[in-house]
Design a protein around this nucleic acid. Structure first.
Lengths: 251, 251
DNA sequence: CGTGTTATTGAGTAGCATCAATAATTGTGG
DNA sequence: CCACAATTATTGATGCTACTCAATAACACG
């Protein structure tokens, strides 16, 4: 819809040629898969990432147990990933923003080990794993980069374990908010203000606390003038103090 | 020291030829890096994994911030990995048994993001990353297998997040003990009895609870006849009930 | 054999969960 | 576009889990 040819002659500023490319002219290329690739390699990656998929808010990108075929890069929007507990309950284990990769969990067994749901209307680039693999075999830089991405995912999860295992509610929420705003900053947005795309319940699930505790902790941080939280609109009022809280350096 | 040539003529039962091999005749090859490799590929991997390193109990295999060069496969013994919190405290984020890989955290940044310490006198096989990478470029099966290993590491960490985020003390410890004994079983040992190589404090750090709570929970599980715990000697007395507890199916 | 570390158990308490009521917001169909 | 229902969020009162502090016991190491 958006990329109809007749639009190109009027308001739209991108050329038809550019539209055929995917990664090359993507504004996320410094965050996403193509990091550090040469033009030639980038062109090959373009062909691989030809399929885009749009998801409405609440829609599943994949579900637990589904056959793993592809990785997904978030083009626009936000996602949450959930693991299904054996007792039937779910837990949020991550939020994914633009440029971040989804589906790495499925590579080990060939089945997705978690589910991914769009938190707003979103778009993903589909990266068929078998073809990524071929290309990585050919281009060493892509190989290395893919390994680095997976390694960073591991480190990210280990930091989440740290948060869940040894922080108290106020500290968890502070660390979480700072993490979100830093990621916003890396995408060229303000690190002072942002819109939270997730509910209090989803935040609570991710941080291992109940929705009431999340709400109370938000109120506490606001009362202490560290943040302003109006619905989903967050403003960091005192970054230094919030960071002290998050890192346990608070008096 | 141990592999001096003159030892081979006396008590030692392995031949000189076998000693040159590493992975090929390793009894861990069904658990470790070589899984699913062809004989030719295995032989090439052998040359790569030539360096073994012995560590005494308490010794560091690597520290946070150290330059990342190699991955390590546990040949004998047990390790713990720790992340250093910004406030100076540490948290255990994993225990590694024979055949398990250490160091994947360092790949992303080129620096180790956690530290690894031997819980008993141990031995590791050193796998230089740059050479593993070359070999993986050549042998697709090794490439795929390495990706699967990393993916499983991610899933493992996500399950740890689940444990820390949504289980209570008794459930955490039950799940932990079952996880340990299952891994023992995969190595051909009894899944009913084992020696815990870590202290109560290390267990607590991993499970996000204080040492007193670990101790009390052990006592509770013993009182309920689910386990027998005598110092570090664990016996699973009622596997079914313990599993019900761990999976939240307990009445 | 003594000293430092590790483990157990008890008493009291803090922090978070639970239950509950209400308010605000979002989504839906007429 | 509005009214109603469903979802989401806030705040209070109360209870339980796990933490803290403390004392003692058991063990590991030189």
């Amino acid at each position: 819809m958006v990329y109809q040819t007749d639009m190109l002659n009027s308001a739209c500023t991108v050329s038809l040629q550019e539209l055929k490319k995917n990664c090359s002219n993507c504004n996320l290329k410094d965050l996403c898969m193509p990091v550090g690739l040469k033009p030639e390699e980038l062109e090959r990656l373009d062909k691989l990432v030809s399929l885009r998929r749009k998801l409405l808010k609440g829609e599943h990108l994949f579900r637990t147990g589904e056959h793993f075929n592809s990785l997904f890069a978030v083009k626009t929007g936000t996602f949450k990933t959930l693991v299904n507990n054996q007792d039937g309950s779910d837990q949020v284990i991550g939020f994914q923003m633009t440029g971040e990769l989804l589906g790495l969990d499925g590579l080990g067994t060939g089945q997705h080990m978690c589910e991914a749901i769009a938190l707003e209307d979103s778009e993903v680039c589909t990266i068929p794993y078998s073809r990524l693999d071929e290309l990585a075999q050919e281009f060493h830089a892509l190989q290395m980069h893919f390994h680095r991405i997976m390694s960073r995912e591991i480190v990210k999860d280990q930091n989440a374990m740290l948060l869940l295992g040894s922080m108290r509610a106020e500290q968890r929420l502070s660390a979480f908010l700072l993490n979100l705003t830093e990621r916003q900053k890396a995408r060229g947005f303000s690190s002072r203000e942002m819109v939270l795309r997730m509910t209090r319940e989803e935040i609570g699930s991710y941080l291992g606390m109940k929705i009431e505790t999340v709400s109370r902790t938000f109120s506490k941080l606001q009362k202490d003038q560290l943040i302003k939280i109006d619905q989903k609109n967050l403003t960091i009022l005192n970054h230094t103090l919030l960071q002290n809280l998050a890192t346990g350096k608070a008096h």
